[in-house]
Amino acid sequence: MNEILLDARQVEKQFGGIRALASVDVQQAVGETLGMIGPNGSGKTTFVNVVSGHLSIDAGSISFAGAPISGRRPHAITRAGLTRTYQAVRVFSKLTVADNLRTTALAAGREEGVKDSHVRELIHWLELDRRLDAIAGMLTLFEQRRLELAMRLALRPKLVMLDEPVGGLSAVEITHMMKLLGELKTRYSLFVIEHTMRVIRELADRVVVLVSGQKIADGRPEEILRDERVVRNYLGSQGA
């Protein structure tokens, strides 16, 4: 295994009487694409929320790039190189595409904003060139997903955590997004939460399965998708 990038050990999170994460261990290597699957309410998004600093942990520890990040605020974790997307796409919906990207570029210390060469390349790659003056909230969902991705990549992250990146997209759009993610995978470490097994099968190097806040499996996608406990608890006929 390459150098460890994300190291979550014995992570616990409780909401009142509900145990959202129960002693979860997740390690991810540099350059690896890690998939996380599980039924709704199994704790996948909660895991991303505790790693990205949006929620505190009750017990355990989380390290990123060799430094502890549990207890740090989200902006500090982002600056450390960890970025994330959301299930419901999150962009500044009342601002233009250009202003969304300008703000992100400035936050990343790129004073040239959308004129920055890396940001311009992202705009071109994600086909946002002709939508720069459009209000982000007026874009199609797929365009918003691409904008969301452009904003996160403008931060030059070490790890991109994608929460259901193809959620709500049509079959054609999923194919396009898969191609984008496939290219992304060659340059970034990715952490992907998805219900669409095709995405996990084609993208993930390794898969972690959560059920009721507990990790029940961890391994290569082909093994995981055949694992009897995973099929019984989550996949049903989908994994076959």
Partner: peptide, 24 residues
């Protein structure tokens, strides 16, 4: 200025602003 872009981002969505590395 850069601060202006950040405070407008905070007005629009402070959680997203924080997520982008802005110390809200």
């Amino acid at each position: 200025s850069r601060m202006g872009a950040f405070i407008i981002a905070i007005r629009e969505d402070d959680l997203l602003a924080e997520e982008l590395g802005i110390d809200v």
